[in-house]
Nucleic acid binder design. Structure first.
Length: 172
DNA sequence: GTAACGATCCTC
DNA sequence: AGGATCGTTACA
């Protein structure tokens, strides 16, 4: 009997508002070439939900960068922000239903830009499939599922309705 | 080709 | 409070 198993496709097909809090406490596993996998417990996430969500990149249109978000859930959306920080997102939901979860904190590392730097995640991880990749995947972890929900960070430009949605989830 | 803009982080 | 720093995007 395995103690840990890779999370498979059906898990990621759910709505982002259900999946973002469900990711808290799960293990993000990163395996470098010739190195043992390292596990990081996810501690903070944010949901970005569809073209109507003015904080979500797809609300600006379907472009080359955001095309990956239209995939079925389970692949990564990685993009550069402020010219220096890679943002790690997990695409969720069904195909043609563009949503993603921004991973804002793992394993005591706070901040989406800091965690990608610490884990060595960059543009080469964009479109990577968490259910098939040899270098990054997700595992379940028994334990605490308590969390709080707050407004998302850094999305004031989205206007009052969308910036105030309590779609940031922090494990407590 | 040009210009504007960030789902951030660090230093002052 | 302000600067770093550059890919993506829209527009000419």
């Amino acid at each position: 009997m395995k103690l840990t198993t890779r999370i498979e496709k059906p898990f990621f097909r759910r709505d982002v508002l259900e999946l973002a809090p469900a990711l808290l406490g799960m293990q993000l596993v990163v395996a470098g070439p010739g190195r043992e996998p390292v596990r990081y417990a996810i501690s903070e996430t944010e949901a970005y939900r569809g073209v109507e969500d003015l904080a979500c990149h797809v609300s600006k249109g379907r472009t080359g960068r955001t095309e990956i978000m239209y995939s079925e859930g389970g692949v990564l959306y990685v993009y550069l922000i402020y010219g220096m920080h890679w943002m790690l997102n997990i695409v969720t939901g069904m195909a043609e239903q563009p949503q993603a979860v921004l991973i804002r904190g793992v394993g005591g590392i706070s901040g989406p830009g800091r965690l990608t730097r610490a884990l060595g995640i960059d543009k080469s991880f964009n479109a990577e499939d968490l259910t098939a990749s040899e270098r990054i995947w997700l595992e379940d972890s028994p334990g605490n599922s308590r969390f709080i929900a707050t407004p998302r960070i850094g999305v004031d430009y989205a206007g009052p309705v969308w910036k105030e949605k309590p779609w940031r989830f922090v494990a407590v």
